[in-house]
């Protein structure tokens, strides 16, 4: 380019940065998240489990109703993870079970977090007698021992379908998250920017959901993932105790059957290890994503 004395050479450079500044859209949250290494690992793992839930039944080597294999086999070429005491293929069960476990985990987790958010936020934001009342409720649900309560409810409801299991876990599981979200809201409300929002004439619901929630998004997602992990484990626990529905195939029922037929003693480590690892892997993937969100959700930590 020729140097033109009438146009100072800095001008085009400044114009360019001006345009960049005004035209650039804020980067997409998921693009940002993907750029975080831990989140990337977590998302990949989670994607793998989702793929398992969606396509598992298609790639499963056998049908779930095939029960005429040799019983209690250790891993072989025909049955990579062995067979059960009633002659089913463990790998097939694992692939089918992903669907139920993930469904129960995410749906119950979502229900739990919605109840926890609503009650926790209302208590923490409005304080006073509203808070006293809701805190009492949370403390009552919290001190009621969760598993026995689930057992009690599970024992009284007529049918033990997936829906009922989810319902039982949601009713018993929200109080812990509700209390931590309340505490978080309690401190948030005192911050200057919330007072400033009141000066700007915002209404309570706007302040809670548009001003405060974005600032605790990572916290809420952490709680949601915690609830999902809790639900997957609780489902496994219910099934393990035989209070679920043993005719459903989930990772929980697999562990239940493996335990009740002494899989460990007969050397069928794969039968009990595989669903256990899947549950642990799911928990790990959510935790990794959580780390990533923590780093990304805070705009002060975002790079220019």
């Amino acid at each position: 380019m020729l140097w033109n004395p009438l146009k100072p050479s800095v001008t085009p450079i400044r114009l360019q940065s001006d345009r960049e500044d005004t035209l650039r859209k804020p980067p997409n949250f998921f693009v940002l998240l993907w750029s975080n290494r831990k989140a990337r690992i977590g998302i990949t793992m989670l994607f793998f489990f989702f793929a398992m839930a969606v396509f598992g039944p298609l790639v499963a080597p056998y049908s779930l109703s095939d029960t005429d294999f040799a019983t209690s086999q250790p891993p072989t070429l025909a049955h990579w993870l062995g067979t059960t005491q009633s002659g089913q293929d463990v790998l097939t069960q694992l692939l089918y079970g992903a669907r139920v476990s993930l469904f129960v985990g995410f749906v119950a987790g979502a229900l739990v977090i919605v109840i926890a958010m609503f009650i926790g936020f209302v208590a923490g934001y409005f304080r006073g007698w509203v808070d006293d009342l809701l805190s009492l409720l949370m403390n009552i649900v919290l001190v009621l021992p969760g598993l026995p309560l689930m057992i009690l409810i599970a024992a009284y409801i007529p049918s033990h379908g997936i829906g009922e299991i989810i319902l039982v876990m949601s009713i018993t599981g929200w109080a812990f998250g509700g209390r931590t979200l309340r505490a978080q809201m309690f401190t948030m409300v005192q911050q200057d920017y919330v007072i400033a929002a009141k000066f700007a004439g915002e209404k309570s619901l706007w302040i809670i959901f548009r001003e405060i929630v974005p600032n605790m998004l990572s916290y809420i997602i952490a709680n949601f993932f915690g609830a999902v992990i809790g639900a997957v484990l609780a489902e496994a626990g219910l099934e393990f105790l035989g209070l679920g529905n043993p005719s459903i195939t989930s990772w929980g029922t697999m562990i239940y059957w493996a335990q009740s037929s002494d899989a460990m003693l007969s050397g069928q480590w794969a039968w009990i290890l595989a669903p256990g690892l899947c549950i642990a892997g799911l928990a790990a993937s959510l935790t990794f994503i959580n780390f990533g969100i923590d780093a990304v959700a805070n705009p002060r930590l975002q790079e220019e």
């Binding site: 911050q191 200057d192 920017y193 007072i195 400033a196 929002a197 000066f199 001003e211 974005p214 600032n215 805070n298 705009p299 002060r300």
Partner: peptide, 16 residues
């Protein structure tokens, strides 16, 4: 009546 706060960082919502 409006208010100007002491700490300009904490009185602005970082997301807005």
């Amino acid at each position: 009546v409006q208010m100007v706060f002491q700490d300009p960082f904490s009185s602005l919502n970082p997301h807005n």
